[in-house]
Design a protein around this nucleic acid. Structure first.
Length: 480
RNA sequence: GCGCCUCUAGCUCAACGGCAGAGCAACGGACUCUUAAUCCGCAGGUUCUGGGUUCGAAUCCCAGGGGGCGCACCA
């Protein structure tokens, strides 16, 4: 293997710099779907892809050529195909370009009767067992380029991921939203409660954080007069890796001036059900063997209601810290002395209620204490106008009526800073420029964030985030 | 970070204290309509690494490394 490069210098020099492909194999399959057995069409195409199977039968041979659109059989014979002896000698995995007539074989298999062919790349390594493929997760995630050939269904997930994001853009632009880009390097880690990655800028000699959310910059753009903005981009959180968490993941965040969280609910259920319809062909989809109904309108409940329902007794944030803490302890929830009643209520909710939800639910009205960027609820004391969307027991989206009052935002930041000093690594820092922006005036604004990876998991029926991220974060390989 | 499981040929897997094996891939050969083609032949190993127990270790024990699952954290 290691000396193979020296073995064929001449072959490498014969690799062409381009190949004039005239069709993808999927296109040919669609055009000639109705041919009977043993037909010749007189139509000639040039295709390109990898040889994935090769069956020799004396002076003829059959090969399976696969490209990104599917696979087609190549029919070759000593009397029809140039360099037939070399063709049957090809290793599985070799990229070739082939030109020939569309035919069907006696058994009715749509094939290309190859007249000319050329090697486009040699495969010095094999793609694993032709029946079992490659199943080792380590190999699959580290060498996705192998996984994509060895396990064709993997390809479909990434095609769908691309369509989901593309359709999302199309949908939002259709609603008058403008796509923007904001910094990934932040001098203050804000916009979410999470531990940031730290990096360093040499020329400025300053530490910077990889963003944990684009939120504060997007709202600055609303202050600047862009009324409907969105960003689809990577965010980074320095936390554990799990089947549902990758340290870098993709979020959609959008902001709409003059809107509140009720508008965000309508937008969310319309967007997600639309994506279900486009990607899965229905707003009723199948997830992990179970039916899941994305059809709007989605159920709306308050956090206090759903917790009360699960506990079988009335629970609200105003019942006070000691009583809520007692309930938490009853359910084996750790309660930190620094927590107020709002945080305790959130913990109870996450422990006992969140996982019980299957079909989409808007869980509304969060404690102010755990929502430093959300606007006070217009009728409930110590609560904010915020909701999360829970689907299949997981948080998919987070949204609120944005806090617009600079003085109140300053108080919230100060509280966060105090929390940080007390050891809460996820608490936000003070962002003076953001406060200054609010002082110029932010109108009523609705904001929404959707975890794209989890949305893709939902619409592609995957239970692990690593299946929808092409190159998930992994430890570096040891010596190989 | 903690707990449980796992790592054997390029790939998929056997052997579970007694000679490290099979199928596929690779390599050599036969075959003019195959569909994971078939048939014949040949080759392929630091059983993740390092210690230990034992007459004898892929197998049992300890430590380390990779991976998976669960918990914790979060989206």
């Amino acid at each position: 293997m290691s000396d193979s490069i020296d073995d064929r210098p001449s072959e490498s020099s014969e690799i062409p710099y381009s190949f004039a492909r005239t069709a993808g194999v999927g296109e040919i399959r669609r055009s000639f779907a109705d041919l009977g057995p043993g037909e010749s069409t007189g139509v000639v195409y040039s295709v390109a892809g990898r040889i994935m199977l090769l069956r020799r039968q004396g002076k003829i041979a059959f090969a399976e050529l696969r490209d990104s659109s599917g696979h087609i059989q190549l029919f070759t014979g000593a009397d029809v195909t140039e360099n037939f002896d070399k063709f049957v000698d090809l290793s599985l995995g070799t990229w070739i370009g082939a030109t020939g007539e569309v035919i069907t074989t006696r058994r009715g298999e749509l094939s290309l009767k190859v007249q000319r062919w050329v090697v486009l790349a040699h495969a010095e390594r094999g793609f694993g067992d032709k029946w079992h493929g490659v199943t080792d997760p380590d190999t699959r995630y580290r060498q996705r380029y192998v996984d994509l050939w060895a396990n064709p269904e993997v390809r479909e997930i990434f095609v769908k991921r691309s369509k989901i994001i593309s359709e999302m853009r199309h949908y939002l632009e259709g609603k008058g939203f403008m796509e923007v880009e904001t910094p990934l390097l932040h001098s203050v880690a804000g916009g979410a409660l999470a531990k940031p990655f730290t990096t360093h800028h040499n020329a400025l000699d300053m530490d910077l954080f990889l963003r944990i959310a684009p939120e504060l910059y997007l709202k600055r753009l609303v202050v600047g007069g862009f009324e409907k903005v969105f960003e689809i981009g990577r965010v980074f959180r320095n936390e554990g890796i799990s089947p549902r968490h990758n340290p870098e993941f993709t979020m959609l965040e959008l902001y709409q001036a003059y809107a509140d969280y009720h508008v965000m609910m309508e937008l969310t259920e319309d967007l997600v059900s639309h994506l279900g319809q486009v990607i899965c062909g229905s707003t009723v989809i199948s997830y992990q063997g179970r039916e899941l109904d994305l059809t709007p309108p989605w159920k709306r409940v308050t956090m206090e209601e759903i917790v009360s329902e699960q506990l079988g007794r009335e629970v609200c944030v105003s019942m006070g810290l000691s009583e809520l803490s007692a309930i938490a302890v009853e359910h084996e929830i750790f309660v930190s002395p620094s927590w107020g009643p709002g945080k305790v209520l959130l913990e109870i909710y996450e422990k006992i209620a969140e996982h019980t939800i299957w079909d989409p639910v808007f869980v509304c009205d969060y404690p102010l204490e755990v929502s430093p960027l959300s606007r006070d609820h217009r009728s409930k004391h110590d609560m904010v106008e915020r909701f999360e969307v829970i689907i299949a027991g997981r948080e998919l989206a987070n949204a609120f009526s944005e806090l617009t009052d600079p003085a109140e935002q300053r108080r919230r930041f100060l509280h966060q800073v105090a929390q940080h000093i007390e050891g809460d690594e996820e608490a936000m820092g003070m962002d003076e420029d953001y406060l200054r922006a609010l002082e110029y005036g932010l109108p009523a604004t609705g904001g929404l964030g959707i975890g794209i990876d989890r949305l893709v998991m939902l619409l592609t029926d995957q239970s692990q985030i690593r299946e929808v991220v092409a190159f998930p974060t992994m430890r570096p390989e040891q010596d190989r």
